[in-house]
Simulated scan of single mutants.
Amino acid sequence: MHPQSESDGSVVDDNAVQLPFTGVRGRRKICRFTTIDLPSTQPAYRILVGSNCAPVETPYLVDVLPSNTEILPVRSQGPVVPLAGLPDDHPIVQKSKTLKHKKSLQALVDQVDIKTLEKDVTWLSGEASGSPFITRASTSKQSLEVAEWLQSQFESYGCDSVELMHYRERFGPNVICKFKGTEHPDEHVIIGAHHDSRGSLFNPRAPGADDDGSGTSMLLQVARIIKANNVKFGRTFVISAFSGEEQGLFGSAALAKKMKEYGTTITMMIQGDMLAYRKPGEPIQIAFPARYHTPEVSALLRNVTQLYVPDAIVGTTGACCSDHQSFWENGFPATAFFERNGPIADPKYHNSGDLVHREGYDFEQLRASTKAMMASVFEVADAKYDA
């Protein structure tokens, strides 16, 4: 998950950071960034924005900057032209008109199981006995190992295909599981999360239990329930575990660009990022983005959430920006799910203390988010199952 930008009340520092490096053609170049410090009400971190150097020009930049900095990518495809709105005959608009509660779907989403969520998250965070993982940082050797483990899990859950999508040298791959649609195989519904993580400066551990082990465990849970109930889909259903999110949405940008170039029809893409932290004393919440989203999609999924997870308080967050933004920027309908209305509250955000076994990490919160996301994609992908 990326932090909020200056539009959320942060203060811009007029002093630019200048970082020399050797560019892709061996030429010495100065990269200039503007720094932004978030207000004291937010977790402490600094954002780097407005780089005059594209990420491809600075392949090692992420290794020399402190881990609590963010690099917002320079989009090489030119000005962002997101989807302006959905036509009346779009499946999202039509679903909004006909949406109603289904007891059979409620029975499916109620199968979301805390024990298996905990098993998967603690394995990813390295807290489970026998887990080999110390870090899931995108450029670490273990990023590939995590991707290969996820590949094996998705294969065991019966995906029609599982691909390791390598998109950039030194980065772990995306993991893409597909269930081919039976009626509209050329229409795609995508659910995503990112399997990479970040830690504290000079600390080799990057467990990322909330950011975004919670989202990754959600993906595994959805796949598990598909297999357990022999679920089929009218539209092709894609589960995507991205890498490179923390360095600037690199993995999702590569997939979104590829799908756009191929002329792929994407009915909806949704992202789950940071789903498990609940600030002590607060109720279970599910939040949708205030920006970088398709309003019609967010409106539909708010209603889906209220139907199938009625105990959760549904609202809006200014926290951004996760992998759904890559699809939104490429003109695809997209939105995201987040753990809290309002700003980020997790005190271990982008910290080596982002573990499961700590105050505030709440599996009831994660279960609610998983139920809402699963109900959403099953509705839009036209899931078929025994009632």
Rank of each mutant, 00 (worst) to 15 (best):
S7I: 08
Q325M: 09
Q247F: 03
A276F: 02
T34G: 00
Q271F: 04
A241P: 12
P283Q: 03
T98V: 07
S5H: 12
R46V: 10
F171E: 07
T69G: 02
S369E: 12
Q285H: 07
Q365T: 14
G181Y: 06
Y45Q: 15
G331I: 07
I47F: 02
T264C: 01
I176V: 15
F378N: 03
D362E: 08
S143D: 09
L48Y: 06
S298C: 05
L249C: 07
R198F: 04
S10W: 15
S67K: 12
A336C: 12
S161R: 13
R367S: 11
A387F: 07
S138H: 08
P20M: 01
G23E: 09
V222I: 12
N203Y: 09
S138R: 10
V64A: 03
G172I: 12
R25N: 13
D14Y: 07
V356G: 01
L86M: 09
Q153E: 12
I71Q: 04
T41Y: 07
Q151A: 06
P310C: 05
A290L: 14
T316D: 10
K371M: 15
P280R: 02
G9F: 04
Q94P: 08
T317E: 01
H166N: 14
E187P: 05
A336V: 10
S131R: 11
M1E: 13
V80A: 00
V231M: 02
G215D: 03
G199A: 05
G272P: 08
R75P: 07
D211M: 02
R28T: 13
C31E: 08
Q271T: 12
T135A: 01
E145V: 14
G244F: 00
T69E: 02
C321H: 08
Y60F: 15
G215R: 00
F250L: 12
E57L: 01
N230I: 08
V56H: 13
G26E: 12
E163I: 13
L117F: 05
K227N: 07
A147Y: 03
A387L: 13
L201K: 14
A44E: 10
V74S: 04
F327N: 05
L65G: 02
L105E: 05
S240W: 05
F179Q: 13
P289V: 03
L219H: 00
Q151D: 09
D382I: 15
S376M: 05
Y157F: 08
G181H: 10
E379I: 15
T182S: 06
I47S: 01
S161V: 11
M269C: 11
Q153A: 09
P204G: 01
R136C: 02
D110N: 11
D362R: 03
F378H: 00
G353D: 10
D212I: 05
E6W: 14
E359Q: 15
G272D: 05
V297I: 12
S10A: 15
R367T: 15
D186F: 02
Q151L: 04
Q325W: 10
A54G: 09
I36M: 01
P82K: 03
A334T: 11
S326F: 04
T182R: 10
L355H: 11
M269F: 12
G208Q: 06
T122C: 00
P173F: 01
F337W: 09
I266E: 04
Q285M: 14
I344G: 03
